[in-house]
């Protein structure tokens, strides 16, 4: 009887511990991010700092998409944080290359930067059309497009083998094959860029790029917030950067946001 009571007591204590400590522990370690609607609400109310923090929390929780980066960029821009806003817009652009509002706001913000950076000329004709298609799809869409074209190509091949190659089917197969090849080249370029090319945006109002990785090196250029740079290497808190006009230099890692 005594043993039975002891058993009941231990069980009750365990259940109480489980019931009491687990939620307590959860409250202490897990931070539930605000909902997107909540963040939008802050933005609509003009509480821009809270909106930016809310968007950032959602992004930090692992929910990453172009719209969140765009919204965060807007909240930052309206607070006057030009460099950080452009950084978020650039991040959003990887997800939403066709989103007109994003491009508009990015251009708007770029127009306010001090540094004017060269942009490549537009190509024309077929090359321009293909480049347009290339730049209008994000990596994910490119991958799905290639997968879809691959499926269609396979189905067409199988159809042709078993039903015979009519003129229409042959023409369709060639067209799909051409699109597939273009898609594969475009997607390969995007994957290589995604995996190997690192870019960043200056987020400090004004910084001096140095000739070496340290404050004691002589300056090579003065850069301002919002300027997009290509990243070379990291060394002891410093980053080697390169501008489109081939100016290179080292800047402190703290002054740079990675896209």
């Amino acid at each position: 009887m005594t043993r039975q009571r002891l058993g009941i007591g231990i069980t009750a204590f365990f259940l109480l511990w489980v019931g009491g400590t687990l939620p307590l522990g959860a409250q202490q370690t897990v931070t539930v991010p605000p909902s997107v609607e909540e963040a939008h609400g802050y933005y609509e109310d003009g509480r821009l700092n809270e909106a930016a923090q809310a968007y950032q929390s959602i992004l930090d929780s692992g929910v990453t998409n172009g719209w969140l980066h765009y919204d965060l960029g807007n909240a930052l821009f309206r607070q006057g944080k030009l460099g950080e806003a452009i950084l978020e817009y650039e991040r959003a652009l990887r997800y939403l290359p066709r989103f007109g509002d994003l491009r508009h706001n990015l251009e708007y913000a770029r127009n306010l930067t001090v540094d004017e950076v060269l942009r490549p000329a537009k190509s024309e004709g077929v090359v321009g059309f293909v480049y347009d298609l290339h730049s209008k799809l994000n990596l994910r869409e490119s991958l799905w497009t290639v997968a879809l074209l691959w499926w269609i190509f396979v189905i067409l091949l199988i159809l042709g083998w078993f039903t015979g190659w009519s003129d229409r089917l042959t023409w369709l197969r060639r067209a799909v094959m051409a699109l597939l090849l273009i898609g594969m080249v475009s997607t390969t370029i995007k994957i290589i860029q995604f995996e190997t090319v690192q870019e960043g945006v200056i987020i400090a109002p004004e910084i001096e790029a140095k000739t070496g990785p340290g404050a004691d090196y002589s300056p090579t250029a003065v850069l301002h917030e919002g300027t997009k740079v290509r990243i070379g290497e990291f060394r002891s808190g410093w980053v080697r950067i390169r501008l489109p006009n081939n100016i290179t230099g080292w800047i402190s890692r703290d002054n740079l946001g990675l896209i």
Partner: peptide, 30 residues
């Protein structure tokens, strides 16, 4: 023309992964 407004809607809360090729499902699809 002026600065454009934030984007709202159901998609803003979705997690989107760009490098699909790193996952097994996409590899299987191919």
């Amino acid at each position: 023309e002026d600065f454009r407004h934030i984007a709202t809607g159901p998609k803003t809360g979705q997690a989107i992964k760009l490098n699909l090729y790193a996952g097994p499902i996409f590899i299987l699809v191919l």
